[in-house]
Amino acid sequence: MIIETAVVKNVTGDQVSVQCESQSACNHCHASDNCGTGTVAKAFPHRIHSFTVTKTAGVVTGDKIEIGLPEKNLVTSAMLVYLLPLATILLSLGLGQYLSQTLQFEGEGLVILAAFIGGGLGFSCTRKLSAKFDQRFDFKPKMIGVVTQSEVIGQWRVD
């Protein structure tokens, strides 16, 4: 389970609105001044993520809580976002190349057009599938517990 520390912003019934800040793992070593990835991490500000979880313990606004997401869900989401568009682009490239050779087109315009169409289809499918996954209860983060100040060492940990 991937566990993140979040701050409670609002409590409404059994729903808790929380915010957590994503931080780059980069820019924390001695080579960060000479590393391209570290330079990019410095250039972009931290993002604040806001969402709602179901309350499993008594909390009030300002409390720090731990929220968790199973690794399986993270891997599935990453495959959906990265691999599905890539697969559709590669398949459409192959189809475009086949059609270009079969119809004896000069140049690679048809292949490039097929790649753009395949990419658009891949991203469209990703959007629709991610909306379906967003409705599933097992893909939502869950509140694990309330964090006391002495337990907060870093922003995230993996159990």
Rank of each mutant, 00 (worst) to 15 (best):
P70V: 12
Q104E: 02
V75H: 11
G96D: 13
F137T: 11
I65R: 02
I48M: 05
T126C: 09
E151V: 07
M143P: 10
G145N: 05
D33E: 15
M1F: 07
Q23C: 12
E108W: 00
H49G: 04
N10I: 01
N34A: 15
Y98M: 12
L90I: 11
S124Y: 14
I67M: 14
A43V: 02
S50G: 09
V59I: 11
H30D: 13
T102A: 10
M1N: 08
F44W: 04
S50F: 09
I117Y: 08
K140R: 13
Y82G: 02
H49V: 06
L99I: 14
I2T: 09
G109L: 05
L74Q: 04
L95R: 13
I65H: 01
Q23V: 13
C29I: 09
N10S: 00
L129M: 06
A115Q: 15
T61C: 03
S22F: 06
V53E: 05
S124H: 11
E4W: 04
K140I: 07
I117M: 02
A78E: 00
H46R: 12
F105T: 00
Q23E: 10
T52K: 05
V11H: 02
V75P: 00
I144H: 04
L95G: 12
F123Y: 10
K9L: 09
F51M: 11
Q149A: 13
V40Q: 08
I65W: 04
T12M: 03
F51H: 03
T12Y: 02
M143K: 00
K128F: 10
G68T: 01
V59G: 05
V158K: 04
T5I: 09
T88Q: 04
N10Y: 02
S17P: 01
A25I: 12
A31C: 15
V18Q: 04
N34D: 15
E66P: 04
T88L: 14
N34K: 14
S130H: 05
I65K: 02
R127M: 15
Q155T: 11
T5C: 01
N10L: 02
K72H: 11
L83C: 14
T56E: 10
T61Y: 03
V16L: 05
N73W: 04
P45W: 07
T76K: 13
L74T: 06
L80I: 07
L69H: 01
A43G: 06
I89S: 06
T39A: 14
V60H: 01
D159F: 00
G68I: 02
D134E: 11
I48C: 07
T148Q: 13
A131H: 05
